[in-house]
């Protein structure tokens, strides 16, 4: 009975990990669609020249390539990285 409770507690804790990670990036709405891509591109255009802008541009190019290949998860991940670069 005690083992079962501990196991239940462990499962509950592990189940909360993805939620915690997701909440860490709640500020970024990284959908893989034209609206988000255009919004991030507008953000990038407004950035000053530098390493962050280069990174964001490359990430967006990769995201668009992945979107064309229907790899939506990969696309989201790169859009997310581009968004992070725009905030530097």
């Amino acid at each position: 009975m005690r083992h079962a409770s501990l196991l239940l507690l462990l499962v509950a804790c592990l189940a909360g990990v993805p939620l915690t990670l997701a909440l860490g990036h709640e500020g970024h709405h990284a959908e893989c669609n034209d609206t988000t891509i255009n919004a991030v591109k507008a953000d990038i255009q407004a950035m000053s020249k530098g390493e962050a802008k280069t990174t964001a541009t490359k990430e967006m190019e990769t995201a668009q390539q992945l979107m064309a290949k229907d790899d939506m998860e990969g696309c989201k991940s790169h859009i997310h990285s581009a968004m992070e670069a725009t905030e530097q």
């Binding site: 609206t35 255009n38 919004a39 255009q45």
Partner: peptide
């Protein structure tokens, strides 16, 4: 306004 200019126009 939700579609950015092309890079040359910008």
């Amino acid at each position: 306004a939700d579609v950015p200019h092309t890079q040359p126009v910008y």
